[in-house]
Amino acid sequence: MKFGERIKKLRTQKGLTLDQLAQETASSKSYIWELENKNPPRPSAEKLSSIASALGVTVDYLIGADTQTLSDAEDTAFFRQYSGLPEETRRQIREMARILDTKPRK
């Protein structure tokens, strides 16, 4: 899948319009449209990072630089965000994960 196709697919899966993604990434609607539809796109590293963050994936996944699955990319992006949270918030998230874990305990 090409770079622009990935952006569009992720954007639509998250229910974001071009305007909404543009706003979240401090871009214009036309710039996001160009990234999705022009070949080859040439975004800056800063824009790539901003778009990947807004879409909840890694830059590597977005540009197709590795064989990471979407789920793995989302987990990596989540962990990076999680790592930057205050300790008390991380503790609460860990507790929620334990509560949501429905696997039988041995």
Rank of each mutant, 00 (worst) to 15 (best):
T12E: 14
T12I: 10
Q13V: 00
Q13H: 09
K14G: 03
K14D: 02
K14S: 10
G15E: 09
G15T: 02
G15K: 12
G15Q: 10
G15M: 01
L16A: 01
L16G: 01
L16Q: 04
L16H: 04
L16F: 14
T17F: 04
T17S: 15
L18V: 02
L18R: 07
L18G: 03
L18W: 01
D19P: 00
D19V: 04
D19K: 10
D19I: 01
D19R: 09
Q20T: 12
Q20M: 08
Q20A: 13
Q20W: 00
Q20H: 03
Q20Y: 00
L21G: 01
A22R: 02
A22D: 02
A22F: 03
Q23A: 12
Q23M: 07
E24D: 09
E24P: 00
E24W: 03
T25E: 02
T25M: 02
A26M: 07
A26Q: 11
A26D: 14
A26C: 02
S27P: 00
S27V: 01
S28W: 06
S28Q: 11
K29T: 12
S30A: 14
S30M: 10
S30E: 11
Y31T: 13
Y31R: 05
Y31P: 01
I32D: 03
I32S: 04
W33L: 11
W33S: 15
W33Q: 12
W33P: 00
E34Y: 09
E34M: 13
E34V: 01
L35N: 06
L35C: 08
E36H: 06
E36G: 07
E36F: 08
E36R: 05
N37L: 03
N37A: 02
N37V: 05
K38D: 12
K38R: 15
N39E: 15
N39M: 10
P40T: 08
P40H: 08
P40C: 08
P40K: 09
P41M: 06
R42S: 15
R42L: 12
R42F: 06
R42Y: 07
P43W: 08
P43Y: 09
P43D: 09
S44E: 14
S44Y: 09
A45N: 13
A45E: 15
A45K: 10
